[in-house]
Design a protein around this nucleic acid. Structure first.
Length: 828
RNA sequence: GGGCACGUAGCUCAGUUGGUUAGAGCACUACCUUGACAUGGUAGGGGUCCGGGGUUCGAGUCCCUGCGUGCCCACCA
């Protein structure tokens, strides 16, 4: 029995506490069901939670809740990504502290403190949203266990020769002063610069003109390229040109990558201005002339410009070229440059290239292997696989995992001071910090020298988050399941949920790592979410969050259930806007559920549900049960296909339009047992029991079908009204609804259509006369095909209930028609 | 320049393998306090399914093509 009004403000937090106390979401090692293991995204703590997170995490939670109710053994841990550059920059931005100034150790402690604070808030928020996480299984990517897994995985890569150390051109941020990976690069559009044409001396008074946006790299120029078919330049290929100002001699070479239509068609190759320079440098075995330091200033090679920042140097060189009459042409242009995500202070520094020793994970030589693995994984929606393959096909670099920063997982490595040989940690000393700890051997195994230099770099944050499936294998250790047992029982995992912007990073890197470490795909299914966009349609930017972007007030205003309703309303993978109308609809559905359940349960006092349908079912009941069977079937299939929005709307429409608006109105008088002359099958006891049976299963099924979406209201209804008879301690561990084989009934569907048409006719008659739906009618004569008369006659009580007719009679005829007499005024 | 997705009512979207008269919510109009619910209910108006070809007895749905929008990638001397 449900009393009074449903107050989500009180109910939601109360239920959340009850779930924690009753451990409904905790992993059960002896659960007999098929494992449903989730490689949950560890959100980066370097920012605030926003509606984009809510959108994505709710979608995964709905699927996880569905599989739990299907009787599967759910493993739903939760991680926080709190290592590496993002956290460091977050800490620098918030505290104003800098690693160089305060010292490495103190800085690391500040990062840990920042992360811890953020994680406490995050966990509280996720609980408030109603995620069905097992919070005992919480990890952070900087905790000792994750550091150990990450370093161990690095040793594995090294032993299998899948990672190599190379002094090579690297994408470099001069602000953060670290190398970055190709996946970290994003476009910065509309950057203004000068495109300047300057002459190179070919000797004998001839000049070869090239156009450039990077004149500060003149000192680093090592060649000039023209297209082999460019008639203007066929004569100069093979000659030597001298750079202006610096005067070094460089060869003029032909390569198809020189674009005749761009600038003058002749282009200078510097070490390094862009990726093409790197490729030319490699393929044509050009010399190395580095003019840039790690901090973005010019080095001694730049002669008079040494010490200047590259932007200052660019300006000075342009002035000097102009002064020397060497500017042939100059255009102000806007172009797109590569920057990296999460640059210090949001500065979006233009990326450069320089040469430095880094660890690279092999990607390029196994492209097909990555693509094949992607095809063995089910992507939801399927077309997201194309983004994965697209990214792999466009890869130009192996994965640089070295970061020249302070905070992160250290490489378990030292280098021999004498010969440079890497010396790797032994597994039993992990997690290790080479800056503090000694290598496992006293001397270099290659040259015997005894002095070592620790690898002072830390790993790319993705280098650790790409082994979350391996970290997950450790979360059950405290509960008696070793990583080895985990491997045997739960590999591959089942679900990886994440948004589409990190397919190229998190999904891709995780697949690579899994194939390297285990030879197998990491999971069988990937659920890709879209973005929750702000009401103007823009992506909710992590760096520009305003107070209004905090989702907590939204939860308090509309309820977690209503927000979850919004988050699961769009087609899988699609973006959606924040929209108060949708929150309101969610809230309306919550209220409607409460009220409908209240009516149903008020008529269930002492009712013991029968597992088999009673013989007294009327066509009305059979119609609803038949529709219910279809809805259960379709909603279940949609959820199996990860199409949660379709499952939700199917159930919602059934509940609202068929169960509430029609069935309840038809069955009301049988339920109340007050039909004055319930003739035929409308005999009081049997007719009421049939309606009770129908309503019990219809309401219970709807509550269960919506439980993954609206976990709070459905739990409240279940606990108060159904737990005793259905037998579970929570709707969230109750059995997923199944229809009784006898429910599907095509004949009942057809009769139902006619019943609804009769109800509609009566309502239209009343609406035309502007009287209430509850107003009584006089005699109603229904024209209907004769073969339907017995079924309709059986439903007399229900037809009276929905039409409020004083009497109903039938007349044979092909087309359905109603002849309605106004009600006779009642004698006073 | 390449890839992917999308284009259906004023707005946001659903339309299963091609099959009657294309649906829902919101908004709009008129009305109804009916014994679960006014955070409700009833009735109604509103659509050349982006354009053009084609396949078919039949196309919102399949094929070709054009246009538009968004995202990803490439280019970015």
């Amino acid at each position: 029995m449900l009393e009074g009004k449903y107050d989500f403000r009180n109910a939601e937090t109360r239920l959340q506490s009850a779930w924690a106390a009753s451990k409904v979401y905790e992993f059960d090692p002896s659960h007999p069901g098929r494992p449903y293991t989730v490689d949950t995204p560890p959100p980066t703590v370097s920012g605030k939670i926003h509606m984009g997170h809510v959108y994505s995490y709710t979608q995964a939670d709905v699927l996880i809740r569905y599989h739990r109710m299907k009787g599967e053994q759910v493993l739903y841990p939760f991680g926080f990504d709190d290592n590496g550059l993002p956290t460091e920059i977050f800490t620098e931005n918030v505290t104003g502290m800098k690693a160089q100034d305060v010292g490495r150790q103190q800085f690391i402690e500040a990062c840990l403190a920042m992360s811890h604070e953020a994680e406490v808030q995050f966990e509280r928020f996720w609980k408030r949203l109603g995620l069905s996480v097992d919070w005992r299984l919480r990890y952070s990517t900087i905790d000792p266990r994750s550091r150990r897994v990450s370093q161990q995985a690095f040793l594995d890569l090294y032993e299998k020769d899948n990672v190599y150390r190379l002094e090579a051109p690297t994408l470099w941020c001069t602000t953060c002063q670290t190398g970055v990976a190709q996946a970290d690069v994003e476009d910065q559009e509309g950057v203004e610069t000068f495109f300047t044409t300057i002459p190179f001396d070919l000797g004998s008074g001839e000049a070869l003109r090239i156009a450039t946006t990077r004149p500060e790299l003149l000192a680093a120029c090592v060649a000039i390229f023209v297209h082999p078919n460019d008639a203007r330049y066929t004569g100069v290929v093979g000659k030597t040109a001298r750079t202006p100002i610096f005067g070094q001699s460089v060869p003029v070479l032909a390569d198809h990558r020189a674009n005749p239509e761009k600038g003058t068609g002749a282009v200078m190759c510097c070490t390094f201005g862009d990726v093409t320079d790197v490729a030319w440098w490699r393929e044509h075995k050009l010399p190395l002339r580095l003019a840039l330091r790690e901090d973005g200033r010019m080095n001694d090679l730049a002669g008079p410009y040494a010490g200047l920042h590259l932007k200052q140097a660019r300006a000075r060189i342009l002035e000097d070229l102009a002064a020397g009459g060497l500017v042939r042409e100059q255009m102000k242009i806007e172009h797109t440059v590569g920057v990296h995500e999460r640059c210090v202070g949001g500065r979006k520094t233009e990326l450069d290239y320089l040469v430095r020793g880094q660890w690279f994970v092999k990607l390029l030589e196994y492209k097909q292997r990555w693509i094949d693995a992607g095809r063995r994984i089910k992507w939801h929606p399927d077309h997201m696989r194309a983004r994965y393959e697209n990214w792999i096909e466009g890869l130009n670099w192996d994965w640089n995992i070295s970061r020249q920063r302070a905070y992160g997982v250290p490489f378990p490595a030292w280098f021999c001071k004498a010969c440079g040989q890497p010396i790797l940690a032994s597994r039993d000393q992990l997690p290790v910090d080479p800056l503090a700890d000694a290598p496992p051997v006293a001397s270099c195994p290659k040259c015997g020298a005894t002095e070592v230099t620790p690898d002072a770099d830390v790993m790319d944050t993705w280098a650790t988050s790409s082994v979350t499936p391996q970290i997950c294998a450790t979360v059950l250790e405290p509960f008696g399941i070793s990583p080895d047992e985990f491997e045997a029982r739960f590999r591959p995992m089942v679900l990886r949920p994440n948004a589409h912007d990190i397919i190229r990073t998190w999904d891709f890197y995780t697949i690579v790592r899994s194939l390297y470490h285990t030879g197998e795909i990491p999971w069988t299914d990937v659920l890709i979410s879209g973005w929750g966009l702000d009401s103007s349609g823009k992506k909710i930017s992590k760096s520009k969050l305003k107070a209004a972007d905090d989702p907590t007030p939204t939860l308090e205003q509309w309820s977690a259930d209503a927000v979850r309703y919004w988050a699961t309303g769009a087609r899988t993978g699609a973006d959606t806007y924040i929209n108060d109308e949708v929150f309101r609809n969610g809230q309306r559905l919550v209220t409607k559920l409460w009220n409908a359940a209240r009516l149903a349960l008020s008529q269930m006092d002492g009712y013991v549900p029968s597992p088999t349908p009673p013989v007294s079912l009327l066509p009305t009941d059979r119609w609803l049960l038949s529709r219910l069977a279809q809805v259960i079937d379709r909603a279940t299939r949609s959820l199996e296909d990860y199409e949660y929005a379709a499952a939700k709307s199917e159930t919602e429409r059934f509940f609202w339009a068929e169960l509430c608006d029609n069935y309840l109105e038809l069955a009301k008088s049988r339920l109340y047992g007050d039909d004055p002359a319930a003739g035929g099958n409308g005999r009081a006891g049997a007719g009421r029991e049939a309606a009770q049976y129908t309503l019990y299963y219809a309401v219970l099924s709807v509550v269960k079908l919506l439980a993954p979406f609206l976990p709070h209201i459905t739990e409240e209804i279940y606990l108060q009204g159904f737990a005793k008879t259905d037998g579970a301690t929570s709707v969230h561990v109750s059995r997923w609804p199944e229809s009784h084989p006898s429910w599907a009934d095509l004949a009942a569907d057809a009769v139902g259509e006619v019943l609804l048409a009769i109800a509609d006719g009566a309502r239209r008659w009343k609406s035309d006369r502007k009287v209430s739906v509850g107003a009584p009618l006089g005699a109603v004569t229904i024209t209907a095909p004769a073969d339907l008369h017995p079924a309709l006659d059986a439903c007399l009580a229900d037809l009276r209930s929905v039409t409020r007719a004083q009497s109903i009679s039938f007349r044979p005829g092909d087309a359905l028609a109603l002849d309605i007499q106004a009600a006779q005024p009642q004698p006073a």
